[in-house]
């Protein structure tokens, strides 16, 4: 593999990326060019949508299981915290993609708390409220923006998390 390089006066080398990819793709032509690839992907995704609730349920089960483990003695084991954090982080990204943004926000609140507190100082009761809210949201099938009550609960918890984690005066 060769790459054109150029070095400037402050010892920074700029490298033109070897053109390995360009020969591999060509513009779509004819009938193929008339098809919108994004629309085709969205259509394929819509066929998967019937699975989303079950998939999300399985992810929430992981969160509940790791939370139960974390709450068992002995306390403050890094492995248990990491497992729960990873479950919350995954749920944050996946729930939004699967069409459950309220659950994503609740999982994000858990992540924020865990990133801002040491295990011995962690506000476990507040995390527990997030976990219970996620359970309620999955039970109520809170897709999209959810109910007014669900939105109010999520906003309330988000406000508490912000007050506890954001520097005062900001």
């Amino acid at each position: 593999m060769t790459a054109a390089t150029e070095t400037n006066s402050i010892n920074v080398k700029f490298i033109a990326v070897p053109p390995d990819l360009r020969p591999k793709y060509v513009p779509l032509r004819g009938d193929a060019a008339a098809i919108d690839p994004v629309a085709r992907a969205e259509e394929a995704l819509s066929k998967l949508a019937d699975n989303f609730e079950r998939w999300l349920g399985e992810e929430v089960d992981v969160l509940l299981r790791t939370w139960a483990e974390l709450r068992k003695p002995p306390a403050h084991l890094p492995g248990k915290h990491n497992a729960f954090y990873l479950a919350a982080h995954d749920l944050r990204g996946e729930a939004a993609t699967l069409g459950y943004p309220l659950i994503s926000r609740l999982a994000g609140g858990i992540c924020t708390l865990m990133e801002n507190f040491a295990p011995e100082d962690m506000p476990y009761d507040l995390i527990d409220q997030h976990v219970l809210a996620i359970k309620a949201a999955i039970r109520e099938k809170a897709e999209g923006n959810g109910s007014e009550t669900a939105r109010a609960l999520v906003q309330h918890l988000a406000k508490i998390v912000a007050e506890m984690t954001e520097p005062s005066g900001t």
Binding site: P37, A44, E94
Partner: peptide, 24 residues
């Protein structure tokens, strides 16, 4: 083109792969 998808979630890998297939 060859794509490598890395994600610890089976579901996310499936969603991404579905999108990629849709892209051709």
């Amino acid at each position: 083109l060859k794509f490598l998808v890395i994600d610890d979630s089976t579901f996310m890998r499936r969603i991404i792969a579905t999108m990629l297939h849709g892209f051709g």
